[in-house]
Each structure stands twice: as structure tokens, then as C-alpha cells.
């Protein structure tokens, strides 16, 4: 196609303008708002007992969901790309289901299932367990929402990889674990890391599903996004933006790691 200089420039400028106006400016606004009343207020908001509890809970939930979904993602991608079976297409669609379902609905679904009056409620209370309005519920909701990320990153990478290298490893005497560690993993590592990063970012930031199952008990079941919302509703803007800026910082760091990974994948496949 012949390049139209005018159209090209117009498109590039529009996109930059759009992104600066709707993404970059609001993001910078968060940081200015957070520091509006001085560093002392900022630090107080972050070091506040409830804020620290929210940060701890968010990190705990992320630390549980990301490894589990990574394991699931690797297994699912492996099954889909290395074996032929009936219902493969169905499995692919099911993995993407959390993208299609609104997080709020996901949250309601867990309430319907696990609340004391829900389908499995009596069984759970008999065992003396609490899922809804408690950490297990938050973990479940987050897992549901972040389920597709790793699998979706890995499937195209493993598809392109094919089976021959693994067959070669096995025919040279490697066992299943050696094959995975020495042949499969090095080939998928950048895609895997990218999936894990995306999954973590979403796990940290998840609001909708978690807000429904958590019950928002301060100092107990509040995650960072929930804590920010509560502060905001109580007109503690500086504090809300201070915690928000911390989360945004996490997002920016994630973005940098992602760019770095993309750069690495690019150079390593050259």
C-alpha cells in the first residue's frame, strides 16, 4: 500500500493526543492530588493501620492466585497445544469465559454458591468454614477473574513451538520433568512471564467481583481497591489518592517490566 504522509501523521498525532488526554493526564492528576496536602499526609495515609492491612491482604491474595493460575495456565495450554482431543474448542472458549462475564456477576455467582443460604452454604457452615465475607471468597473471586491471562499468553507460543523438540528430548532419554525444564520452559519463558505479569496486575487491581464477596470489613477483608473506594466515599480525598498512587505505581512498574519482556522476546527470537 502506498503511504499517505498526511493520513499517517494525523493518525499518529490523534492517537498520542487521545492517550495523553485520557490516560496520562488523569494518572499524573492522581499523584498531584495525593501529594496536595504534603508528604506527611501522604505517608500517614499509606502507613495507616487499615491501609497497611489492605495492602497486606492484596499481596496475600495475589500471592495465592497468581501461582495457582500460572499452574492452571501451563496445564491448559499444554493440553490444548500438545494433545488432540474432543472438546478442545469448548475448553478454549471456557478459558475465555471470565473475560466475557462481568466481574460483578462473577461475585454474585460466588455469593449464590457459598453464602450460608446458598447452594453449598449449609455444607460449608457444617464444616465450620467461611468463604463469603472472608479471605477464601476474595481469593476465589480473584482467581475466577484472572484465570485466562497465563493460558492465553501461552497457547499461541506453544502452538508455534510444535511438538518436535519435545519428542527429540524424549527420544534422547529425557524424562517428562527434564523435558519440561530443559526444552519446554526455555521456549515459553518470556510468554509465561508476560502472562504472569498481566495476571498479577489484574489480581492486584480487581474491584468488582471482590467488592461483592468481601463484605468490606475494615482491617479484615478490605483489599487496596476497596480501601480506596471507602476513603473516597468518606471524603478523605488525599488519603484515597495516596493509596491510589501506590497502586498506580505498581501498574507503571508492571508496564515497564512488560516492555522489557517484549524487548527481550524480540531479541531472543531474532
Amino acid at each position: 500500500m502506498r503511504e499517505h504522509k498526511g493520513i499517517k501523521l494525523a493518525l499518529i498525532f490523534t492517537m498520542y493526543g487521545y492517550i495523553i488526554l485520557f490516560l496520562l493526564v488523569p494518572l499524573l492528576f492522581i499523584f498531584t492530588k495525593a501529594l496536595e496536602q504534603g508528604v506527611a499526609v501522604y505517608l500517614a495515609a499509606i502507613l495507616d493501620e487499615e491501609a497497611r492491612s489492605a495492602i497486606r491482604l492484596t499481596l496475600l491474595v495475589t500471592a495465592i492466585t497468581v501461582p495457582l493460575n500460572t499452574l492452571f495456565g501451563i496445564s491448559a495450554a499444554w493440553a490444548i497445544t500438545k494433545f488432540d482431543f474432543k472438546g478442545k474448542q469448548l475448553l478454549l472458549s471456557l478459558i475465555e469465559l471470565p473475560f466475557a462475564v462481568s466481574p460483578v456477576i462473577a461475585g454474585l455467582m460466588f455469593i449464590l454458591f457459598f453464602s450460608p443460604s446458598g447452594v453449598l452454604g449449609t455444607v460449608i457452615t457444617d464444616f465450620g468454614l467461611r468463604i463469603i465475607f472472608s479471605v477464601p471468597g476474595i481469593v476465589l473471586a480473584t482467581m475466577f477473574v484472572t484465570l485466562p491471562f497465563v493460558a492465553r499468553e501461552l497457547i499461541p507460543v506453544m502452538e508455534a513451538q510444535g511438538r518436535a523438540e519435545e519428542e527429540a528430548a524424549i527420544s534422547l532419554g529425557a524424562n517428562g520433568f527434564q523435558m519440561f525444564k530443559r526444552v519446554t520452559l526455555p521456549a515459553i519463558k518470556w510468554g509465561l512471564l508476560y502472562g504472569v505479569i498481566l495476571c498479577s496486575a489484574r489480581a492486584v487491581g480487581e474491584f468488582g467481583a471482590v467488592s461483592i464477596v468481601s463484605g468490606r470489613i475494615r482491617g479484615m477483608t478490605n483489599t487496596m481497591p476497596l480501601h480506596i473506594e471507602i476513603l473516597y466515599n468518606e471524603y478523605q480525598f488525599a488519603a484515597a489518592f495516596a493509596v491510589a498512587s501506590l497502586m498506580s505505581l505498581l501498574a507503571v512498574i508492571t508496564l515497564f517490566i512488560k516492555v522489557w519482556i517484549e524487548h527481550r522476546t524480540h531479541t531472543s527470537t531474532r
Binding site: A164, E167, A168, I170, S171, G173, A174, P186, A187
Partner: peptide, 19 residues
């Protein structure tokens, strides 16, 4: 297969790219 002592050479080599 990993106990068969068979040397197999694949059509498209299947060399380990990262090694």
C-alpha cells in the same frame, strides 16, 4: 521411548533453539 536407545533425526531437525 526414553528407554529404547533409539536415535531419531527429525525432518526439520528439531534442534533445541536456546542451546
Amino acid at each position: 521411548i526414553n528407554q529404547r536407545d533409539v536415535g531419531f533425526v527429525f525432518q526439520h531437525y528439531a534442534l533445541f533453539k536456546h542451546l
